[in-house]
Design a protein around this nucleic acid. Structure first.
Lengths: 147, 147
DNA sequence: GTGTTTGCAAAGTGTTTGCAATTTA
DNA sequence: TAAATTGCAAACACTTTGCAAACAC
């Protein structure tokens, strides 16, 4: 059989993805990457990642490593951290510019379609600073409650 | 002397302010209100409020009461809570719609002039939900560091 | 008086860290 | 083999809570 394929076999996709970003593809990081970067964008917290890993019976990844890896991936540009208040950190596998609804009832984050919201203006950061990121988070509450 | 004045004496301003919002003007809440609602808008954390109260030698307000009161004031519409990540909660004495720079270097929050940033679009919240609030937070980093 | 608020200290939550053992290049 | 990474448990920072005493109306 022709096992020298010109295309990367699927099994090499994730190690390659990490290496391209300068992230050493350790076993634990590959377990996390296989959940995070499976083609379906998601918003996750560290706890959710931990739970997902456990559900797939892929053991041997500690919570500390989940936190470390989420930050490593974020620094490498593979994830985007979404600030949602002091409850917990969300990480978004879609790193391109878009904004979010944060549903305070369910604790879930979901995308606002890019064309539904436009932010415009000319921002001048204070001296010695530059804009690191801009996030628009629209908080959702129960429809019955008063504003 | 005509001590029945038609205008509220200054000393009654804060008790009245709280009572109008249905917040019982206890001694501790008045101490906090005298710092928060002195006419100069500010962004504060619970620790900062605690420190300010101590500096004015107005003792007898515990940290737990600061937290309780900040939330009470927020529910009453006297403050606005600004979500800035999981570091700590900021409260803004300016409750009208405006947005913020969050300086990650100094940990300070500062206003973005209302006319410097325009958010437009037609947002349709998911079923059973309505928009509670919208926040734009622009994170500032050191000018030298890469994006 | 009666229900609300306070203060303390203890518990809680989400996250980070120190360091020896392990793994990767 | 040298440097990076992991896992555990302890440490952490910020916040909330339980409950008796104090207070506001």
């Amino acid at each position: 059989m022709n096992h020298i394929s010109k295309k990367k076999p699927e099994k090499d996709r994730l190690p390659t993805l990490l290496m391209e970003k300068g992230v050493r593809p350790t076993r634990q990081r590959l377990v996390l990457a296989s959940y995070l970067f499976n083609g379906c964008h998601k918003h996750v917290t560290a706890e959710q990642v931990m739970a997902a890993v456990k559900k797939r019976k892929q053991t041997g990844v500690s919570l500390a490593t989940v936190y470390n890896s989420l930050h490593t991936f974020t620094e490498a540009g593979l994830l985007r951290e979404i600030p949602v208040g002091q409850t917990c950190s969300f990480f978004d596998t879609n790193t391109s510019g878009h904004h979010h609804f944060f549903d305070e009832v369910s604790g879930q984050l979901c995308d606002i379609p890019a064309d539904a919201l436009r932010v415009s203006g000319v921002l001048t950061p204070p001296a010695g600073r530059k804009i690191g990121s801009m996030d628009v988070t629209v908080r959702l509450v129960k429809a019955s409650s008063r504003s």
